[in-house]
């Protein structure tokens, strides 16, 4: 799947209720939180995320063996000793999947966070001012989206070199226009509502309206966008590793591991690839469960 993926729920943002005062808003927020923890989807997703968070914080202190320096017999299938088997160099796959959570949970959320921040900024400006600014930026975004994703990635990495920071930056750059497009749509919908018109009539500055009036009301969209992007970031980092432009070995990063071991499947060794792939799937499902729950509560 490409990084251009747009989540259905945010294509047409549900118009949120209009609040009169800050106090009411706080109250509504507490109510939504209460609704949230009642949803089983949210609980499951939250627990999965919590598990990976524990793995990320614990690192090699809680893994069965050293995920990087402990070489046993290579390519052993799963057994009681190595529950997930060993990889092509003889490292314990279970330990590497657990330790890999740290790389994934650092890189993916930062990349998603940066792109959502930048994209929201651009999107709100476009949606609020509309007119010429909107037209010009729209064309640029459209042009950027029509350049093959991998080419942008390879370009950045061939000029700047490959490192974790560069990878995070690259993913952020790739996602920013998509986020901007989504946030623009949400802002457009808000801009036509009465409270924005009222603020304008009061003579509030554009900056004030955008940050104090519009931003709080589209924060749900932005939050959902963030969780969706986290999932895609893991996927994209994996694709970058496949192209030799990603996070560097011997990191147990899931995407890197998959791209380094998928070739062994044809020799019948599925375990070094399958388990990190399942880990990615669990993370994506968990973030989506959380995102969906937040979204439905927001719309409720």
């Amino acid at each position: 799947m490409s990084v251009e993926s747009v989540d259905p729920e945010i294509l047409g943002p549900a118009p949120g209720p209009v609040y009169d005062s800050a106090a009411e808003r706080r109250l509504a927020r507490r109510e939504r939180l209460r609704l949230l923890v009642r949803r089983p989807g949210f609980i499951v997703g939250f627990l999965i995320l919590l598990f990976w968070l524990v793995c990320a914080i614990g690192g090699d202190k809680i893994t069965p063996s050293d995920p990087i320096n402990d070489f046993s017999v290579s390519s052993q299938s799963p057994s009681a000793e190595h529950l997930f088997g060993t990889d092509q160099l003889g490292r314990d796959v279970l330990s590497r999947v657990m330790a890999g959570a740290r790389d994934v949970l650092i890189a993916a959320p930062i990349a998603a966070g940066v792109s959502v921040a930048l994209g929201s900024l651009i999107g709100i400006v476009m949606g609020y001012y509309r007119g010429l600014i909107d037209e010009v930026i729209s064309r640029f975004i459209e042009a950027m989206l029509s350049i093959p994703v991998v080419l942008i990635a390879l370009l950045i990495i061939s000029v700047l070199g490959a490192s974790r920071t560069i990878v995070i930056g690259t993913v952020a750059v790739l996602f920013t226009p998509i986020v901007a497009r989504t946030v623009r749509a949400a802002t457009l919908a808000e801009g036509q509502l009465d409270y924005v018109t009222a603020a304008r009539l009061r003579g509030e500055s554009g900056l004030f309206v955008m940050t104090r009036e519009i931003l709080p009301n589209i924060s749900g969209t932005i939050l959902v966008e963030f969780t969706v992007r986290v999932g895609y970031a893991v996927f994209t980092i994996s694709t970058l590793s496949f192209l030799g432009a990603g996070i560097q070995p011997p990191s147990p990063d899931w995407g890197l591991t998959i791209s380094d071991t998928y070739r062994l499947i044809q020799a019948g060794q599925w375990w070094p690839t399958l388990f990190p792939a399942l880990a990615i799937a669990s993370l994506v499902i968990a973030t989506n469960l959380v995102a969906d729950s937040i979204d439905s509560v927001r719309g409720a």
Binding site: V234, G255, I258
Partner: peptide, 8 residues
């Protein structure tokens, strides 16, 4: 299935 890269 959509979170697993197509080459895998």
């Amino acid at each position: 299935s959509s979170s697993i890269p197509e080459f895998v």
